[in-house]
Amino acid sequence: MPKISRGFHALCIASIMTFLLAPVILVFPISFSADAYVAWPPSAWSTRWYVALLHNEEMVTAFRNSLIIAACVTAITLIVAMPAAVALTRWNFLGRDALTSLFTAPLLLPSIVLGLAILVIFAGYGLVGSWPGVIIGHLVITLPYALRVLITGLSTMPAFVEDAAGTLGADPWRVFRRITLPLMTPALVASAALAFIVSFDEVVISLFIAGTQLKLLPVSLYHYVESWTDPLVAAVSALLVLGTLGIVLIVERAIGFGKAVSK
C-alpha cells in the first residue's frame, strides 16, 4: 500500500476510535469545570462539583440504594442461575434447548416493553417503588447474562474431568464441590460482575418500576439532566466510569488467574 493511503487509513481508524470513546473521556475535564453550566472550554477548573455531589442528598441516597439493589440482585442472580446452568448443561432432556432460549429471551425484548409490562402487572400488587419489585425486575435481565456466561463456563471445562472424578469414587455432589465449582470460579466472577454492572446501570426498567419513592442512581441522573444543565452529572459520570473500570480490572485479574489455572 502506498504511504499516503496507509497514513489516511490509520487516521480514519484513529478518528473512529476517538468518536467511540469521546463521550466517556470528555466527562472528566467537564467534571472539573468551575462554571455553573456545561460549557467548553471551562472558564476555570475546580472540584466544586465533586463537593456539590457529596452534599446532594438525593444523589447520595440514590447511589447507596443502587449499590444495595445491585448487590442483592447479584447474589440472587448467582443463586438462581447457577443451578439452572448446571441443569441445562449436565442433563440431557427433551426441550432443553427451548428452555435455554426462553431463559435468554428477556434480553431480546426491548427493555421499554419489558419495563412497561412489569409496571402494569406489579402495579396491581403494590410492588412498584418497592425493593422486592425493583430486585425482581432487574433479575429478569441479569439472569440471561449470568446464565450465558455460566453455561459457557460449564461447557468449556476440560474434557472428562468430572467423569474422571466419578471413576475415582466421587459421588455427584462431591464432583460438583471438588471439581466443577473450583473450575468455574472465573465464570462465576465474570457473571457476578456482569450482573452487578447491568443492575447498577439499568435505567429503563427502573424508570418504570422504581416509581418516585425508591431513588436509583441512573434514574436520578436522568431526571437531573432533564431539569439542570450544571456539570454535577459529569462528576457522577466520571466516578461511575472509574468504578466500572475498577470492576473490569478485578474481573480481568480473576479470569486471567483462572485461565492460568485451567491451561
Binding site: P23, V24, L26, V27, F200, V225, A234, V236, S237
Partner: peptide
C-alpha cells in the same frame, strides 16, 4: 450506563 454516555 447509557445515561452516562448520552450525557457525554
Amino acid at each position: 450506563s447509557a445515561v452516562v454516555r448520552t450525557y457525554g
